[in-house]
């Protein structure tokens, strides 16, 4: 057996540099992947939320229980007038995270009395508007009767849809490697 000693004084430094490069590539790759999810036709996070708001809040009947009475408000324009929820959709990539949310500060400036129904609700400010529409919400109407508005669940549906789309591979992370792999084609 022949043993060869090679003196590489900078080996440790090289290993550190390679490790740093790998971490940098991981971070850049993740950021690029998150940018793709923002909207390139396969998965479009904010467009999915907007479409669900349009379908489930503006374009669907609203279930309500007033006292002991159940009713379905089928008036299609019930929530159409403001359109504020649709305009308050925000999506942005910050660091290694993708944030999809409703801008409640924007909504606070848009909301006007009587958005839900003319009433004497005193608990409007306890919960942001976005959550009052998403979840079941109880308020007191003009007759002093408690009214339950069934939640529209637009956020929940969006989350389930996006999770399913990604799990099904509609946006494969390997996509971001395609330009690199293309160098070896032909």
């Amino acid at each position: 057996m022949i043993k060869i000693d090679i003196d590489i004084p900078d080996l440790d430094e090289l290993m550190i540099r390679l490790q740093l490069l790998r971490e940098q590539l991981d971070e850049d790759g993740l950021k690029q992947y998150l940018d793709l999810l923002m909207g390139d036709g396969d998965v479009s996070v904010s467009a999915t939320l907007q479409a669900n708001i349009y379908d489930m809040v503006y374009n669907s009947p609203v279930e309500m229980i007033a006292g002991n009475n159940y009713k379905v408000n089928t008036e299609p324009t019930h929530y159409q007038r403001t359109g504020a929820l649709l305009d308050a959709v925000r999506a942005e990539v910050k660091g290694n995270n993708l944030h999809l949310y409703i801008d409640d500060n924007y909504l606070a400036g848009q909301e006007s009395p009587g958005t839900l129904e003319t009433g004497t609700a005193t608990n409007m400010n306890e919960t942001p508007y976005s959550l009052r529409v998403e979840n079941d919400f109880v308020y007191e109407n003009a007759q002093g009767v408690d009214v339950l508005r069934k939640g529209s669940k637009y956020m929940q549906k969006t989350y389930e849809e996006l999770k399913l789309q990604i799990m099904q591979g509609r946006k494969n992370p390997k996509t971001i490697l395609m330009p690199l792999l293309g160098m070896w084609k032909n």
Binding site: A51, D55, N59, S60, P61, T74, E75, P76
Partner: peptide, 12 residues
Amino acid sequence: LNRDSDGMYSCR
């Protein structure tokens, strides 16, 4: 999508 009140139906 069914908007019962005015007999309008839609799909997205």
